[in-house]
Design a protein around this nucleic acid. Structure first.
Length: 287
DNA sequence: AAGTCCATCAACCGCTCGAGT
DNA sequence: GACTCGAGCGGTTGATGGACT
């Protein structure tokens, strides 16, 4: 049994939004809010649009404080760091970049940042032959085939799988509170964060790039999460309680120091790591 | 000047998840 | 527990404009 469509597609306008539609939607939401129901909103606002379309338009374009334009190096760094750690969880990444939307970041990653990391300059016009070569090159870099890697490719040894990522896709954005932290090195070495993972009940588990993790009740599992030599460590054991595989948590592991990826690493080093990830088997890591 | 190719980004589509019944 | 429905997410598509031939 297929599911019912969310709206009557025959009577719904598609394609680019007109300024009139924009102002209608904006005025309505500013006046009445979304009412927690996007499906009925277009009808109430007098728009011939699907509720999903309205939601997307509002979130990605009309919402106040949306930032458009170039991404800064700091933003690049955050995107790279988070991508390396949690993969293409664009909404989580967007939550760390005020004013940026997940769609924006996703587009930016796919069109520019990924190429930047691979050393392919964006917007360079080349001859047809060069373009073909470039296409092949990009394909090789991203998805090296066994045959090509056996021909002396540098990309023969993808990084080992990151076990914690097995569980990450099941964690929704709402499960996190991500708290920027200030350390003596923050200004010099980029932002640092703690992830607070909400559990049912009052138990809050904190994990993130700061490795002195604690829980709200002082007794629950403490997990230090960071990308350091591709190990994920926790203290005190009990990882099973929060649904992580027990193998992730050896317990009683010493503090390894700040995450190389998010705190110590200069931008170029981050890129190197991401490049490695890109060259490896992406599917294995991120999906 | 016209045609073609390509990069970019807004928008769409299909899926999953969670809440409500 | 099974089902329905809406919200949200991530991958993909398509329109557009600029660069190049």
């Amino acid at each position: 049994m297929g599911r019912a469509p969310c709206c009557d597609k025959a009577n719904v306008k598609k394609g680019p939004w007109s300024p009139e539609e924009d102002s209608k939607l904006k005025e309505f939401i500013e006046k009445y809010g979304t009412g927690g129901n996007w499906i009925s909103l277009p009808h109430k606002a007098g728009l011939k649009r699907c509720g999903k379309s309205c939601r997307l338009r509002w979130l990605n374009y009309l919402r106040p404080n949306i930032k458009h334009g170039e991404f800064s190096d700091d933003e690049d760094r955050i995107i790279c760091g988070l991508f390396a750690s949690i993969g293409s969880r664009w909404s989580i990444i967007a939550a760390q970049l005020p004013g940026r939307t997940d769609n924006d970041i996703k587009n930016y990653w796919n069109t520019k940042l990924k190429k930047k990391l691979l050393g392919i300059a964006p917007s360079q016009r080349k001859s047809h032959q060069q373009q073909q070569q470039r296409k092949q090159q990009q394909q090789q870099l991203l998805f090296p085939s066994p045959s090509s890697s056996s021909q002396g490719s540098r990309y023969t040894s993808p990084l080992p799988p990151l076990p914690v990522l097995e569980s990450f896709p099941k964690i929704s954005q709402d499960a996190f509170t991500i708290v920027p932290t200030t350390t003596s090195s923050t200004l010099l070495q980029g932002p640092s964060y703690q992830y607070q993972m909400k559990e049912s009940g009052n138990n809050t588990i904190m994990f993130g790039s700061e490795h002195s993790c604690s829980s709200s009740d002082g007794s629950s599992t403490q997990i230090s999460y960071g990308k350091m030599d591709h190990n994920y460590i926790c203290r005190g054991g009990g990882g099973e309680q929060m649904g992580f595989e027990s193998s992730l948590c050896g317990g009683g592991i010493e503090d390894y120091g700040p995450s190389r990826l998010w705190e110590e690493a200069p931008l170029e080093y981050n890129y190197e790591e991401i490049k490695q990830l890109l060259r490896g088997n992406n599917d294995h890591y991120f999906y």
